[in-house]
Design a protein around this nucleic acid. Structure first.
Lengths: 345, 345
DNA sequence: TTGAAAGCGCTACCAA
DNA sequence: TTGGTAGCGCTTTCAA
């Protein structure tokens, strides 16, 4: 009947202005607090804002001002992996504290998903993008360049990023673990992880690991890449498969801690003694490790901090502060007690 | 110099139209694939789109059409808690599959944070909101009503939701656990959890638990609410505190599995036998439980599914399909082996 | 201190 | 099958 005011039933700036007996412009100025109005005017306008329950339409703001939104697109492979959840938490908390919002994209570790998500999210005029991983499809790269939006690549440190990057060198972390394991007397080692359709951080770790092991007198007898998620149970049955098919494995390196915990349980269940009968090493240092009776040999990465730093870099860029393009936040090998203690032959 | 075309350097629809030698409207129609143009026209337009690297500005679309965006605001207390990460994963995957994006809000379990986030996110004209929890500030409620946007309240089932709700009855899940523990012969029990500034699901569980225990011959000798996060280590030292200050506790109910795991480790470290010397029960059934040597007594909730269902309800509402306002997805008590087996009396 | 006019990129609506 | 015009809610720019 009388609802032809505006197609939406929402209160607009003009209605506030009308009610307050001022022009749209004056009301706009008051709301933005940019000055140039009397205290009396301010009071009246604010009163009407409350009274009418006015909520600004930021779409219009961005649109009119031809600026970007306060959105920051954040792509994460998956949240089943606790470490990514922590990274996201670090990002969103920091971003939120500065008035930005994360627009989430779960890419399931595929470049195709990432590309589609990037296309969509760019159409919303985001202030910037935070992408997990350093590999992107060609089209994604084109769009990103075209959009001319700040981008932080996280997780897998990109020393020559398209814009900015923060993370660790996964190859190095694998390499260090490889050396460590050999230094503890293990020679014939195995790997249990999952397979991916693309180069990623886990493969970089494996590469580094193999290089270190083979370069220091050991051998990686078997690399088992399951077509499954990198979680607890695949770690369990992956271990069973690995040990069942390859004789003489002395130590197993896992794609991550979740899989390593699964492996640990398999060994326990079969009565194998860790680390004497078999060594177990993971990656990521899951929070649950803090209360386990055995400290898992692993690599600690400050995941939450990684997220925070990524957000800080983005925020700095958005406020035109100088930002270093590339930041290594480092990792730390945790000796733990699931590989033998020092005993180099 | 010549950059006055548009303040942004972005390619607009008119530029595509110009290049293709058609009107904006025709180009618009082609891009939306709504029909009403020749194949020849379509081809030309699409060619120019590719050539110019045109990316639509969805802000303008929403704005012009006076419709909502494809955003769905999703508020989650925190991602440190694995169960919420799973819920979010369920939501975003489902939403993403239907062309919607999650705008994340980490509320840190406070109504004030939630309120601020709601205000911001509403200003972006979201298609809908998914909120964790059934309690909201009065102002939040006002804004929500005013905005007239679909809302799904999740986690804590709200039988008379403001719009839609999906989750479980936390009181009942605590009640069932209380009964179970008493039925297994424990009488003097304790609770270890964290404190909150507001009524929430965990307190509902505790309420149900106490009611059941006290109603069936047991007593809750101590409720320890730490000012900390509900994670592993607080579970550990909370157990120490509880057992140190209260004599004769036979079984401990924890706010969640992470805390229960921490407690389990404390008991192990002190040489207490579980479940004979002390019983341990958690809530949530964390994935890591699947590979632990002892099955933790807990309550299983299909977290991922909860998220999916929430997203489905939202999507159904958005496409004007009928939706039941309130959906209980249920829980399942897991007897486990950290409380004694049947032995009533 | 205030306001009027123009326009952001797109779509609804009508006309051709 | 195509195009012109108006307008979404706001800000920018300029004038009063």
């Amino acid at each position: 009947m009388s609802e032809k005011k505006s197609k939406t039933n929402k209160v607009s700036l003009s209605e506030v202005a009308l009610a307050a007996g001022v022009s749209k412009m004056t009301a706009s100025r008051v709301l933005r607090g940019e000055g140039g109005y009397s205290e009396r005017t301010r009071a009246t306008v604010m009163e009407k804002v409350d009274e009418l329950g006015y909520l600004p339409n930021r779409l219009a703001t961005v649109f009119a001002g031809d600026k970007t939104s306060t959105f920051v697109g954040v792509s994460i492979p998956d949240l089943g992996n606790e470490v990514f959840a922590q990274v996201l938490e670090g990002i969103d908390r920091k971003l939120g504290a500065f008035g930005h919002q994360s627009v989430l994209g779960l890419t399931q570790h595929t470049l195709r998903e990432e590309e589609n998500w990037i296309r969509t999210v760019l159409s919303w005029q985001p202030a910037g993008l935070i992408l997990t991983g350093r590999y992107h499809s060609k089209r994604a790269l084109d769009m990103l360049r075209n959009a001319n939006v700040p981008v932080v690549e996280i997780w897998d440190l990109n020393s020559s990023p398209m814009d900015m990057s923060v993370g660790i060198n996964h190859f190095d972390s694998g390499f260090e673990m490889g050396r460590f394991i050999v230094s503890r007397g293990y020679r014939k080692v195995g790997y249990v992880g999952t397979s991916h359709d693309t180069a990623n951080a886990a493969s970089a770790r494996l590469d580094g690991f193999c290089k270190a092991v083979e370069g220091s007198g050991g051998s990686v007898a078997r690399q088992l890449c399951l077509h499954d998620t990198a979680t607890y149970y695949p770690g369990y049955y992956g271990t069973e498969q690995l040990l069942g098919s390859t004789r003489g494995i002395e130590c197993i390196y896992y794609q991550n801690d979740a899989m390593a915990f699964g492996g640990l349980q398999f060994c326990d269940a079969k009565g194998m003694r860790v680390p004497d009968d078999i060594g177990v090493a993971g990656w990521g240092d899951l929070p649950v490790a803090a209360v386990m009776r055995r400290r898992l040999t692993s690599v600690h990465v400050p995941h939450l901090k990684l997220g925070q730093v990524a957000a800080e870099m983005m925020l700095a860029r958005l406020s035109d502060e100088p930002v270093e393009a590339c930041r290594d936040i480092g990792f730390r090998l945790i000796p733990g007690s699931t590989v033998k203690s020092a005993e180099t032959r």
